[in-house]
Every structure is written in C-alpha cells, then in structure tokens.
C-alpha cells in the first residue's frame, strides 16, 4: 500500500483533511486496480475458447512443421536410389562443428576413368546445431533440412547417421 506521509510532512502541510481524503482515495484506487486485474483473469477463466494449449503427443497427426524448419540434415534420394552428392566436401568445410564427414572413394566409369564419388557421408546429429550452413554451401543441392524433430534415442551411437542409402549412386548429370 502506498506509504503514508511521515508525521513531519503531515505537520508541515497541516492538513489532516487532505490526509484522510488521500487515504480513502488510495484505498479506492488500490482496490479498483485489483478488481481490474481480477476481471481480466476472470474473463479467461470463463472463456475456454481462448485456451492455447496444444496437446502435443496427441496431435502428432495434425501437427505440421514449417517447411523450412531445420530439424535434421538429410540427403534425398530419388526412386532409382540416386542422390546428387558429388563428394566435393564443401559441406564438411562449411560446418562449424565438424558434424559432417565425407568419405570418398573412386568409381570406375564405363569409359574406364576413375571418378571421385562418396562412399559414405557421415552425419553426427548429436553435434549438429542446425545452422543451415552446410545446406547453403552445397553446390549441387544434395542435402536438405528435414522437418523431423523427435530425435531422442536411448543410445548415442544411433545419432551418428550415414546419409547416403546403401548401394546408392550419384544421379546422371550432376557434376
């Protein structure tokens, strides 16, 4: 409650009436401000349509993440099990956390020439900060962000993923 004027102040003003009036005014204003707040919470108490809770695990089916949501780095493959990664290691260099490790090998092309290709693209989800730098660094758009977010597993080793599918190879025409 507002502090009452000290005795000395009151004496100097010498207005006991003013004091009483102010005292009552203080009480009135105070109670009013409290009631205003109570009206607001009372409104929400009675208006349940304002409730904003999302019942998360129950609404999995309808839950839609934003298209750009950065959940995890994945490498899309087409129906022929082909990806676009050339093994240029640009993503590995762009990553601030050493999350990506590109393991390359040499394919023999039909013409008999040796060609660099990826053996494995190792991705450590536990190190990734979803900063998107690898995605914008990739010259051939081979990796994208997936919208998954339920990443918890019981074993840390499961977080280390190999992004290219087994037996996959590079798409025609991607250099």
């Amino acid at each position: 409650m507002p502090g009452l004027p000290s005795l000395r102040e009151r004496g100097s003003r010498g207005e006991a009436n003013m004091f009483i009036v102010n005292y009552i005014k203080d009480i009135y204003k105070g109670i009013r401000s409290l009631l205003v707040g109570m009206r607001r919470t009372g409104y929400y108490f009675t208006h349940h349509k304002e409730i904003i809770t999302q019942e998360y695990p129950d609404n999995r089916d309808t839950l839609k993440m934003a298209d750009r949501f950065k959940g995890e780095v994945v490498m899309p493959h087409d129906e022929n099990n082909e990806h676009r990664c050339t093994g240029c290691t640009a993503c590995e260099l762009a990553c601030p956390n050493g999350t990506i490790k590109v393991v390359t090998k040499f394919d023999i092309t039909p013409e008999g020439k040796k060609k660099k290709a990826i053996d494995k693209l190792v991705y450590h989800l536990e190190l990734c900060t979803m900063c998107n730098l690898c995605i914008i660094a990739c010259p051939s758009d081979a990796i994208v962000m997936a919208q998954t977010f339920e990443h918890s597993v019981f074993d840390r080793a499961q977080l280390t993923k190999i992004l290219n599918n087994p037996g996959s190879k590079i798409m025609e025409g991607v250099e």
Binding site: M1, S33, L34, V36, G37, R39, R40, T41
Partner: peptide, 12 residues
Amino acid sequence: DELVTGNIIFQN
C-alpha cells in the same frame, strides 16, 4: 496494463 502495470501491489 490491466494485469500488471496498473496493479497497486505491483506498483508498490
């Protein structure tokens, strides 16, 4: 303002 700013307890 209704909930907090104007509230007498909060102001004090």
